[in-house]
Simulated scan of single mutants.
Amino acid sequence: MKYILLILTVCASINLSAQKYFTKTGITDFKASVEAFEPVEATNKSTTVILDTSNGNIAGLLFVKAFHFEIALMQEHFNESYMDSDMFPKAKFKGSIKDFSIDKLSETSKTFTLIGLLEVHGKSKPIEIVVNLCKKDSKILLTSMFGVKPEDYGIKIPSIVREKIAKTINITLDYELIEKK
């Protein structure tokens, strides 16, 4: 009897460990450009995301200073004047994918609703966005595009540049999640 319990415990723990997918190299882009002005855009290639495939819970974390701009001065202003990156070094997300089941995934992209709390600049706000998921080989690919407003997160845009920055910042997610072993 003890032998059977031991086997069941080992099988359950193997099954639980195989239910998480993650990345430490997820790509998060943002664009805050307005026509007629120079592009305001950056890329972060080190977003960490964990997806629990048993229930669709998902969490993400990125370091704000990891956003890379083509223009160094723009990056400096972003970190010091807008995002206060020393005071608020991370952006976080915690939520779940509605009606998620790994069995629904195939090589064809499927649309799901992602619901949760996005924390930026020390402020949390509920969000609901559309994500596209597919499973290729042993990876889960997650992509999405959505918008956020700086004022929703207490980010103040100085009046001198207010017309040069979009009122809604476009965020693009591109994550390749691998099975956590």
Rank of each mutant, 00 (worst) to 15 (best):
A32D: 02
S33G: 05
S33P: 02
E35M: 00
E35N: 11
F37N: 03
E38Q: 02
P39I: 11
P39A: 11
V40R: 00
E41M: 08
T43C: 03
T43R: 04
S46V: 09
S46F: 07
T47V: 15
T47D: 01
T47K: 03
T48Y: 10
T48D: 01
V49R: 00
V49W: 03
I50F: 06
L51Q: 05
L51D: 05
L51C: 03
D52F: 00
T53W: 06
S54P: 14
S54Y: 05
N55L: 00
N55M: 00
G56R: 02
G56F: 09
N57I: 03
A59T: 15
A59S: 12
G60M: 01
L61N: 06
L62T: 05
F63C: 00
V64R: 08
V64H: 07
V64I: 13
A66D: 09
H68G: 00
F69V: 09
E70H: 12
I71R: 11
L73R: 11
M74E: 06
M74R: 12
M74D: 06
Q75F: 05
Q75S: 11
Q75Y: 07
E76Y: 10
E76C: 02
H77E: 14
H77N: 14
N79G: 13
N79R: 15
S81L: 11
M83T: 11
D84I: 04
S85R: 13
S85D: 12
S85P: 03
S85L: 10
D86A: 14
M87E: 13
M87R: 15
F88M: 05
P89Y: 14
A91V: 13
K92C: 12
K92I: 14
K92S: 15
F93I: 15
F93K: 02
F93H: 12
K94R: 12
G95L: 13
G95A: 14
S96C: 11
I97S: 08
D99L: 12
D99T: 14
D99S: 15
S101G: 12
I102T: 10
I102D: 11
D103L: 11
D103I: 13
D103T: 14
K104A: 15
K104Q: 15
L105A: 08
S106V: 08
S106N: 13
E107C: 09
T108L: 09
T108H: 05
T108Q: 10
T108N: 08
S109E: 08
K110V: 02
K110F: 01
F112C: 06
T113V: 04
T113N: 05
L114P: 07
I115L: 10
I115S: 10
I115P: 02
L117E: 10
E119V: 08
E119F: 10
V120D: 02
H121D: 04
G122C: 11
K123R: 07
K123F: 14
S124E: 10
